[in-house]
């Protein structure tokens, strides 16, 4: 699987181009801003852009969609909690999409916004604004923060700790790194799954 990271200074959003192999069908996650650099990335690698996944509906992650849909005939996939003025395929928690020869697992992680979705493709986790490098996503209040921490704990922290993390803003990371150094998650204490399975290999 090939993953290309594109950063735009408009909204400081990371956009990810994901494809199973060079020159194949490809999908784009969070087109925050579509510029020549992103178009060049798609075209120079001969990818056929077919699908767009949206982690949530904030404009920093969706603003480039208008431009993108004028250039490419793409199917947009977004949370069923979102409402857009254009047609899109709605996603529910635990859905598995088989698109572009990739299996995309959908994980609902509310807190930053009600419609926040995380996409797991192979060994990569595209977290949008739920879990960033060294911190969790911003929340409007302490109740939403508690919801987000609880969602991350229950839905993400039980995944393989070597999984790669590609957030909507900032730098890439690994789940192990966030477990060890993310101050917002230290209150979770010992990771439950490790406690459950630590004797499995004996």
């Amino acid at each position: 699987m090939n993953i290309y990271q594109h950063f735009s200074v408009v909204g400081f959003c990371n956009t990810y181009l994901v494809a199973p192999k060079h020159g194949s069908e490809a999908l784009l996650i969070d087109p925050g801003h579509v510029d020549l650099e992103l178009i060049h990335l798609i075209e120079s690698n001969h990818y056929k852009l077919k699908h767009v996944l949206l982690t949530h509906r904030h404009t920093a992650h969706t603003e480039g969609l208008g431009t993108l849909r004028k250039i490419y005939d793409v199917t947009v996939h977004a949370s069923s909690f979102s409402a857009y003025e254009f047609a899109y395929e709605s996603l529910e928690d635990k859905d598995v999409l088989n698109i572009c020869n990739l299996s995309v697992e959908v994980i609902h992680v509310p807190g930053h916004s009600l419609d926040s979705m995380v996409f797991k493709i192979d060994h990569a986790l595209f977290t949008g604004d739920t879990l960033l490098c060294g911190r969790i996503g911003s929340t409007p209040g302490y109740r939403e923060q508690a919801l987000l921490i609880n969602s991350i704990s229950q839905r993400l922290m039980n995944l393989d700790e070597n999984i790669l993390l590609f957030p909507g803003h900032g730098t890439a990371s690994k789940l192990r790194i966030e477990r060890m150094f993310n101050h917002d998650l230290l209150q979770l204490g010992t990771i439950e799954t490790e406690r459950e399975h630590w004797r499995d290999e004996e």
């Binding site: 490098c133 730098t171 890439a172």
Partner: peptide
């Protein structure tokens, strides 16, 4: 855009660097 979270440095030099969006959290 480089992740230095949780690093432990001793007598290191990052002078004259562009560290835009890098994380030393």
């Amino acid at each position: 855009h480089t992740n230095f979270c949780g690093i432990d440095t001793f007598r290191c030099n990052f002078s004259d660097c562009d560290l835009y969006f890098s994380t030393f959290n």
